[in-house]
Design a protein around this nucleic acid. Structure first.
Lengths: 231, 231
DNA sequence: CATTTTTGTTACCCATGGCTAACGCTAACC
DNA sequence: GGTTAGCGTTAGCCATGGGTAACAAAAATG
C-alpha cells in the first residue's frame, strides 16, 4: 500500500498546528486590539460565541504559547510574540487570497472574504509566498486593506468612516470592511471602491448621499459606516 | 459592529456540510472501491485509523445519507448516490487544485498532493469551476489522473504498474500515485512522468531499470509500483 | 453611594473524532 | 475439523469546541 507519507489525514484533535478555531481566536484578538489587550467579551461578540467559549479558549491558547499568560484576575487577552506573528501571518494569507481570488479568478468582491476565510487556515506559508510572487507582491487587497509582508506593527488608529463626515466634504475611499458581504456588494455596485473620490451631498440619520464620479448614490448609514476614508 | 453575515466561524461540530473527516471517509471508500462496496478494514488501513473509528464513522455517514444504510451484518460500505456525487466532487477539486498549483504556482510535483489534500475541503464548487475555467478545463492532473467534469462512472479496472512488466517491454507512463510524495519526487527527477515512453531493461526483485529517452534510470520496486502504464 | 449591568469563571451537557481492550463471528490454513 | 487470523462491534476513555445556568466581582449608571 503506497502509503509512506501517510500523514494521517483524519487527526483533528491531535493536530500539532493551531486549529481553525484557535487561529480565529488569535486573529480576532489581533484585529480587535491591534496589539493592545482585548476584553474577552469583545472577542465573544466578534466571533459570535459565548463568553464561556472564549474563557476556555484562553486556557488552551495560553498552553499553546499564543497568549501571554497573566494569571491576573483582571485579565484582558494579550497576544504573545508567537501569537502576534501568527495573527499577522493569517492577515497576510487572507489578504493575499482575496487579492488572488478577485484578480485572477474573477470572484466577485462581496464573495472573496468568505472564501478566503476558509482557505487561509489550510495553505502553507510556502504557498502564500508563491501567491504573493504570482501577484507581484501587491500592497493592498481589493477592499483597500494593506498586505503585511514583514511582521510590521499595524499603522495608527482606525480611519474615520463615511458615516462620520458632514455634508459638503470631499473624501477619498481608503477601504471597505470586508466582513460585511452585503455592504460590500452594495458599495461595489455603486462604484464606491478604494481610490474613488466622493463628494458628500447630504448626510442625515437614515441615509448618506454622495456623488461618485458622475453618479449620485444614496447609501444607508450602515453601509456608509463600512467605508473608511481620508480627506 | 459590522457583522451582519456573521456565519459563526468557529462552529466545528455543528457544521451543516460534511466535515473534513467525513469527506475523507467518502473519498477513501470511493477510491478503494470505485463504486463497488468496500470492506471497513480496508478503509481503516487506507486512512491510518482504527477499525473502530470506521465503524463509528459508518453510522454518522449513514445519518448524513452518504452511505447506503444496509442493516445487514455482512456490511461492506457502499456509497449512496449523494455519497458518490460528493466523492466525485472531491476528486475533481483535488485534481483541479493539483493542476493549478503545479501549472500556475510552480509548486513542485511531489508537494501538490499534500497541499491540495487540505484545500479541497474548503473551496466552494463555484471556486472549483472558476479554477477549471482559468486552466481551460484540463483533462488530467499533473500525475496523469483524469479530471471528472460530470459525475461519470470511473473507467475500467486499474492499469498495470511498472513493477509488473517483464524486461524488454516498451511502455507509456499513464500516471503516478500521488499519495506517495517521496516516490513522486524520485520519479519526477528521473523523468518518469505521464506521457513518457519507457523501455524496461531489467526487472528483478529489488530494482527495475528502465530507459527513459536517452537516460537509463534504476528504480526500486516500491517506486515502480507507483507508476501506472499502458503499452 | 447604591443599584444595575457587564464580565469572567465554574460546573455541567453535547457531538465529533480519535484511541484501546475485549468479544463474537467468519474465513482461511494446516 | 481445529486452530488461527481477520473483521466488525461494543464499551469506555480522551481532547476539542460548542452550548446553559449560575455566581461573584468589577464597572457603569443613576
Amino acid at each position: 500500500m503506497g502509503n509512506k507519507n501517510a500523514t494521517d489525514l483524519l487527526t483533528v484533535g491531535s493536530d500539532r498546528s493551531p486549529s481553525r478555531a484557535r487561529e480565529d481566536y488569535v486573529k480576532a484578538i489581533y484585529q480587535l486590539g491591534g496589539g493592545a489587550p482585548v476584553r474577552a467579551a469583545a472577542v465573544a461578540r466578534y466571533l459570535n460565541v459565548s463568553r464561556v467559549s472564549v474563557s476556555k479558549a484562553k486556557r488552551l491558547l495560553e498552553g499553546d504559547g499564543l497568549l501571554e499568560a497573566e494569571a491576573a484576575p483582571a485579565k484582558p487577552l494579550r497576544l504573545s510574540h508567537k501569537g502576534r506573528a501568527l495573527a499577522v501571518a493569517m492577515v497576510r494569507r487572507h489578504r493575499l487570497l482575496e487579492t488572488f481570488l478577485h484578480r485572477s479568478l474573477d470572484v466577485p468582491l462581496e464573495r472573496v472574504h468568505a472564501e478566503a476565510e476558509r482557505i487561509e487556515h489550510v495553505i502553507s506559508d510556502d504557498l502564500a509566498s508563491r501567491i504573493a510572487a504570482f501577484l507581484g507582491r501587491p500592497s493592498s487587497d481589493p477592499h483597500g486593506h494593506p498586505i503585511p509582508y514583514d511582521d510590521a506593527t499595524t499603522s495608527g488608529g482606525p480611519l474615520p468612516t463615511l458615516a462620520s463626515v458632514a455634508a459638503g466634504a470631499r473624501v477619498v475611499v481608503v477601504s471597505l470592511d470586508d466582513r460585511d458581504d452585503e455592504a460590500v456588494g452594495a458599495l461595489a455596485s455603486a462604484g464606491v471602491l478604494p481610490g474613488a473620490t466622493l463628494r458628500v451631498e447630504r448626510s442625515d440619520t437614515a441615509k448618506v448621499r454622495v456623488r461618485c464620479g458622475t453618479r449620485v448614490v444614496s447609501l444607508n448609514r450602515r453601509h456608509a459606516a463600512m467605508v473608511r476614508i481620508a480627506t
